[in-house]
Nucleic acid binder design. Structure first.
Lengths: 250, 250
DNA sequence: TCAAAAGTGTTAACTGTACACCCATGA
DNA sequence: TCATGGGTGTACAGTTAACACTTTTGA
């Protein structure tokens, strides 16, 4: 965590962490940071969620944006605060974490972290930009092992929030390229929710949504019947959402 | 905020605030703290949400519990973290707030607050205990005026979360006495959701829930047909909830 | 010609919604 | 006897869920 700037510019007890999800070739991935350290004479490689201490002059959201920007070079990314983690022991549950804190000269105080989850789409070859920092890793959520500190808890809760929001808000489209097929969309729902869905019922449901717009474009160079591309129309969504709110009854 | 204990025991940049809701005689109420101050020669009365700085050795949840305990003398209250508020300007938007901060000797740093909402029931004459602290006020949510700092934002968001959770989780029963009538329950939904519901449909829905148990008891001394009392059975709820999760499809 | 994913309708069960009257009680 | 809130059923509309085959393409 931020050792480059002057320590006094930061609130020593407050950090943000970002759980950055992305969907690529049918898998849900997450951005992790490699932490290399010497520990009892050996070199350990270890992973943690991206995060930093919060600056005194910035908003929490700006802080999370800053972390993402420094990490991936991207802004205008879907970003949502979901939980604060504040156990006094959260940084010190393992010997390895204590060693690391000493190694980087961390004051070893309680650090409460405000956790965000973030959705990116791996569109238009942007993926290369995520390699900006040499220790950024892009890993399948299902293959994540033991992370630093309480970061497994943070990831688990982020996933739970992602699942819940997927059913309530149009966030699937943050994870997909601008033009997507219904197969991709269904696959995304299946992967995140962890269950398979009926293709015909799924497509009927989508067909009723006024904000999923079919395009004239069609897949090319696929070894099966080529699929039609669709787009998400945010204005149509906002309109529908507004109407739904106004007429809502339990 | 906490001036009595040693300042070094607290994290100066981190507080918790509690939005304590209660339901009484058909109205949704919230606990507020009166803030009296001299301001340009006059005495102002002002309201804020209960809150305190977080101790270095305590968990965020414990911190919120502590605030509630000190305030109302009650523990084992429904308590849920819902959002962190961290704008650097959040304590200093008004002259009055700045004056107050100087008055109480606050270091005037950025304070990020972790906001909780809490539900209490005004059962069995417990209400008297809420008067423990002389400046505790119990006020209808619909009549709340301008609060200190960004506390109106916090209250607004707490209400939004309360509404959303009311539709998803059995929290209504935290706000009602152990034995309640269906009329009270419907009234609570109507007040929190801000719309009227169809009595017959509402009762049909409740009748299907395996965790709302009719008792043999019946209202007395009411100037209308006396209502039957019901209870919420948490075990039955947990059982049903577990089954629902296991068989869930989108 | 094969493999792989796209695309397509019907039926039955369930859920949500609209709607109006009588009942029991205390004042 | 009146005012107050308690209590009840039916019909229609909309939504969900189960289910199997044909199409188009590249390899």
């Amino acid at each position: 965590m931020a050792q480059k700037q002057l320590l006094k510019d930061f609130i020593p007890n407050l950090s943000v962490n970002c759980v950055v999800f992305g969907f690529e070739s049918g898998k849900l991935n997450v951005v992790l940071i490699e932490r290399k350290m010497h520990y009892w004479g050996k070199i350990y490689h270890d992973l943690e969620l991206p995060g930093e201490l919060v600056r005194r002059d910035e908003d929490l959201n700006s802080s999370a944006c800053r972390v993402l920007k420094e990490l991936t070079g991207l802004d205008n990314i879907y970003l949502k605060q979901f939980e604060a983690f504040g156990s006094p022991q959260r940084l010190k549950r393992r010997k390895r974490d204590l060693t690391w804190l000493k190694f980087v000269g961390h004051p070893e105080q309680t650090v409460v972290t405000i956790a965000y989850y973030s959705l990116i789409n791996i569109d238009q070859g942007k993926i290369s930009k995520y390699k900006l920092h040499p220790n950024v890793r892009w890993m399948q959520v299902s293959e994540v092992q033991e992370l630093a500190y309480d970061h497994n808890d943070i990831l688990t809760n982020a996933l739970a929030v992602l699942r819940a929001e997927l059913l309530l808000k149009p966030i699937a489209y943050e994870l997909l390229p601008k033009k997507f097929t219904l197969g991709q969309l269904q696959n995304l729902y299946e992967v995140i929710l962890g269950k398979s869905l009926d293709k015909r019922n799924f497509r009927k449901k989508i067909a009723k949504l006024p904000y999923i717009i079919p395009t004239a474009e069609i897949q090319a160079n696929v070894a099966h019947k080529p699929a039609q591309f669709y787009t998400f129309n945010n204005k149509a969504y906002a309109r529908m959402h507004k109407e739904a709110l106004e007429s809502a009854v339990v």
